[in-house]
Write a protein that binds this DNA or RNA. Structure first.
Lengths: 204, 204
DNA sequence: AGTCTAAGTAATCGATCGATAACTAATCAT
DNA sequence: ATGATTAGTTATCGATCGATTACTTAGACT
């Protein structure tokens, strides 16, 4: 009677990973509070109760999402740091490694949603800890001095904001938007625009 | 039978302004979706239905909040721009004008909550329009060239993030937090800290 | 072949929220 | 004074959401 979903089962660890990736996208789009566990379940192709059973609570799922995002980000930084073959200066390599994370669409933006909830006792504490982990990495491992770190983080937060505000949406219609974005995404504007139009295709 | 609230009536315009100010604080703390009209009503000392009747919908109230925030911010910029008596360079005057807005606690943060909802069709459009209004002011009225504007905005977004993540919460417990914040809030760190502890007092 | 474990779903519930309706009373204009 | 207007409330409703419970079945292991 009921239309059965495709019944290929996974091991729970593998399914968890899929759900984490789907949740990253959905949280990025609608924020922590604005995202329902049903939204995530739909995006991941499972039932809503299974999402909460795998992660306990929506809050825990969000914490796992931002934890994973930080792990991915720091791994990318480490990769750029260890890439000694390049003659590109370190600061620029790190900046490119950051902007490259926009390939996994929701990654930086889901972090941003956590950053803006600092007053929430548990999410806020996790967000601060994660942010400071990045700060310490840039200072201690990458060897930036505090002022360099600050400039790097500032540029990163502007990138996050431009993505969060979905500025590409107005790229074609407003020459000022174009001017600003060409300035804010060094060498990676084409990628950002391509991802945006790809996203638009998917939503049909 | 019921304990009557103090029955001094206001003209609706005046009450609207009070509610807008209260809503700015509450939206800043818990975000657009995470804030209920009842929360705002409580903060403003009126009933929940009256809030939605004065503004139509919660969405319209939020739009009015960020519109007002932008007006206040641009007025402050204009003030700093016109203050020709000072021998402080223009860039620094503008930066101080920005950080000074933290006096009205939720102002910059409520804007940040709008910036992060760019995919919402109506809030996103308003957020982009507001952001670009600031961009154009800095470029055309303040006379910054695009790169200066970009650096200015980047610093601003870092400030917003540090406030949103509530970094002051860990100021005393983590020397790295202290180092970062001293770097990020030029000359205004004392003010930020004072406001935070004042806020903590209020919540008892 | 049969059993047991783990993956997954359907059904449902209590709480919460934004909005509407219906009502009350203060203030203002004549 | 009184009637009209405007400021404000109480009560309530339909929708939504996260979570729980109880059930089903695919696949691994003897």
């Amino acid at each position: 009677m009921t239309i059965s979903a495709p019944v290929t089962r996974m091991k729970s660890g593998e399914r968890r990973e899929l759900i984490l990736e789907a949740a990253t996208e959905v949280f990025a789009e609608t924020g922590y509070v604005g995202t329902t566990t049903a939204d995530i379940a739909r995006a991941a192709g499972v039932s809503q109760p299974y999402v909460v059973r795998l992660f306990g609570t929506k809050e825990q799922l969000f914490l796992d999402v931002i934890q994973r995002a930080l792990d991915v980000l720091l791994a990318a930084f480490r990769g750029a740091l260890d890439d000694a073959t390049s003659d590109v200066p370190l600061g620029k390599r790190m900046a490119l490694a950051y902007v490259n994370q926009l390939n996994q669409h929701g990654l930086l933006l889901s972090l941003m949603h956590a950053f803006v909830l600092g007053r929430d006792p548990v999410i806020g504490a996790a967000a601060r800890a994660g942010f400071m982990k990045v700060y310490r990495f840039l200072r201690d491992d990458a060897g930036f001095d505090p002022l360099e770190v600050q400039n790097f983080l500032a540029s990163g937060m502007l990138v996050n904001t431009m993505i969060g505000i979905d500025m590409v949406e107005d790229y074609d219609g407003d020459p000022d938007v174009r001017e600003l974005m060409e300035c804010a995404f060094p060498e990676k504007l084409d990628m950002v625009r391509a991802l945006a139009s790809q996203r638009e295709q998917e939503q049909r």
